[in-house]
Design a protein around this nucleic acid. Structure first.
Length: 312
RNA sequence: GCCGCUUUAGCUCAGACGGUAGAGCAGAGGACUGAAAAUCCUCGUGUCCGCAGUUCGAUUCUGCGAGGCGGCA
């Protein structure tokens, strides 16, 4: 018997369009799903985020999906805290929590726990972004180099995103990024079972292209227009997602066609999938498998579940 | 049939008084300290369409072929 204060968690991850949603149905009897796709959290954004359909949702309970306004931010800290609560809750109700999605950053933070680094300080960040605009990246890079040489040496001097955040942390706390520890091993409060879904690159890209075509057939452009009507713009966190941000090109540049947008979305999605795979490869003790070969995974999952008196 | 333009990396194209070539995109690999579908880093040998000529040396010049595009018939 496992220790009773350690919660089992099945984690199912993989690049976009690999087939996670379909695979999860195999676990529907014993589980509830905690979503870790950073855009499926948003309301009104269904087609472009490839949210699971009604039928799927009716078969397994899904959490952290379709609950936030696109203007609201949802960060790694929000995710980890909510997921922690949900895991305890789901397990106490006799189900196995399954965390599934494509956001590797959130996932790693969940598995290892959040770094000590403080959460974002929007006010200070705004000021630094202002300076970035006025003074340029070189200036801020030089500043960070003096403040935190160690961290600066690990990032690119062009990485405006990380330079901004590092300065934000410094001006908010008086401490450098590298003075905060990042956890190095999985948290002991969970018994993880990690499933990594993967396909041949060609096949994955094929699926991505097909899925984007389908999204357009299902009214992705109309969905975007509705979001615009509701008043959401490029600065809203939800609208920065692939499948949405590209449509703003139509407003900016009259020479561009809907077909161009479609190709752009496919391209951005392929790039994203590649980045996801790179990130996922860092996770240890993963059972990697093509979802077409789900039987092999389910065998092992069955073993894992047996210790909790469950079977698939 | 004639005239003109064109043929260089998977694609679009640069380029060199003749010394075997380089961008963008695609593609590959990587990073990732509470914004992450974000942000960023690294990676380019290819019969320079073919053959012949000139030359120490031609992908670059000349001639002849072949493909493509356009115009005139």
């Amino acid at each position: 018997m496992p220790e009773n204060n350690i919660i089992p968690v099945i984690v199912v991850f993989g690049p976009t369009a690999v087939g996670k949603t379909d695979f999860l149905l195999n676990l529907s009897k014993i589980s509830e799903i905690i979503n870790t796709d950073s855009l499926q959290v948003y309301k009104y954004m269904d087609i472009g985020t490839a949210k699971p359909d009604k039928e799927t949702i009716s078969r397994v309970k899904h959490h952290l999906i379709d609950f936030l306004d696109p203007s609201e931010e949802f960060n790694a800290g929000n995710f980890v805290n909510k997921a922690d609560n949900l895991c305890a809750d789901i397990f106490s109700r006799g189900k196995i929590p399954v965390i599934s999605g494509g956001n590797a950053f959130f996932l790693i933070n969940f598995i290892k726990g959040l770094p000590e680094t403080p959460k974002g300080n929007l006010l200070i960040r705004k000021k630094i972004e202002e300076r970035l605009k006025n003074e340029g990246i070189e200036k801020l890079a030089q500043e960070l180099e003096k403040i935190d040489t160690q961290y600066f040496s690990k990032i690119s001097s062009n990485d405006s995103y990380r330079i901004t955040r590092a300065l934000e942390i410094y001006y908010a706390t008086g401490r450098t990024v590298s003075s905060f520890k990042i956890p190095e091993s999985p948290r002991k409060c969970y018994n993880f079972f990690l499933i990594g879904l993967i396909r041949e690159r060609d096949e994955l890209y094929e699926r991505i292209n097909r899925r984007v075509d389908l999204m357009f057939d299902n009214g992705l452009h109309e969905e975007f227009l509705k979001l615009r009507k509701r008043g959401y713009g490029l600065s809203d966190p939800g609208m920065s997602g692939i499948g949405y941000k590209e449509f703003f090109e139509l407003e900016k540049n009259s020479g561009i066609s809907l077909d161009n947008i479609k190709e752009l979305i496919k391209q951005n999605t392929r790039h994203y999938a590649k980045r996801q795979v790179t990130f996922f490869k860092k996770i240890d003790n993963v059972i990697w498998e093509n979802p077409d070969n789900s039987a092999a995974i389910l065998d092992k999952a069955g073993e894992f579940l047996k210790q909790y008196g469950k079977s698939l």
